[in-house]
């Protein structure tokens, strides 16, 4: 009698342990997630491989892109967020091919793929060690994703356990502009964000 009871208790205990293990097991995406270094605006955030700082963020309801004298208007059901900063490789030549906006709800918004490649954004840049380079990031997102969001930059979306920089961008949603223009310059600095401020 006591033996049966003991067996039943042992079984229950085993089931409870297994249930606990199942529910506390980290998810695959957590095991293989990048190693994140966080920081704020106007701050050089450094990982083993690269450093990034962001110094300008502008929010607008519409975006005009001006390349080689042609202007194309890009409308959106949300807003455009244009972020500028400086990226630098530390030890070897590299490209930072992945940049996402992460909203406070945890939703990711990838760099826009709507504007032409003649406007070169961060993923297209080759970063040389010791030579900081200006970087441009353009996102499109719903209005509610702007406040409290951060920018996550890493070498590649596909390499687990790589370095990732996350910078909290305090975008001022009260200063949403009706329209901004992104102009490709044919000489000198590669792009200009208009109107200047």
């Amino acid at each position: 009698m006591i033996g049966t009871l003991r067996t039943a208790l042992a079984l229950l205990f085993a089931a409870a342990v297994l249930y606990g293990l199942q529910h506390t097991r980290p998810r695959y995406s957590q095991i293989t997630s990048p190693i994140v270094t966080t920081g704020g605006m106007n701050e050089r955030v450094q990982t083993g491989n690269f450093a990034l700082s962001l110094d300008s963020v502008r929010v607008a309801r519409a975006l005009d892109v001006e390349t080689f004298g042609k202007t194309k208007a890009y409308t959106t059901p949300g807003v455009w967020v244009v972020v500028e900063g400086t990226a630098e490789a530390r030890h070897e030549t590299l490209s930072l091919t992945s940049a996402d906006w992460i909203s406070t709800a945890g939703v990711r918004y990838a760099l826009t793929d709507r504007i032409p490649a003649t406007i070169e954004m961060l993923p297209g840049d080759v970063n040389q060690p010791g030579l900081p380079r200006r970087a441009l990031l353009v996102f499109e997102m719903p209005q509610e994703a702007v406040a409290g969001g951060s920018v996550a930059v890493t070498r590649s979306k596909l390499s687990p356990l790589d370095d990732e920089v996350q910078i909290a961008v305090d975008a001022d949603t009260d200063r949403t502009e009706p329209k901004i223009t992104l102009r490709r310059n044919n000489e000198g600095f590669p792009w200009t964000v208009l109107p200047q401020r």
Partner: peptide, 9 residues
């Protein structure tokens, strides 16, 4: 310093 550069295209 052990930094390496790749050729520019």
């Amino acid at each position: 310093e052990g930094r390496t550069w790749q050729p520019v295209f």
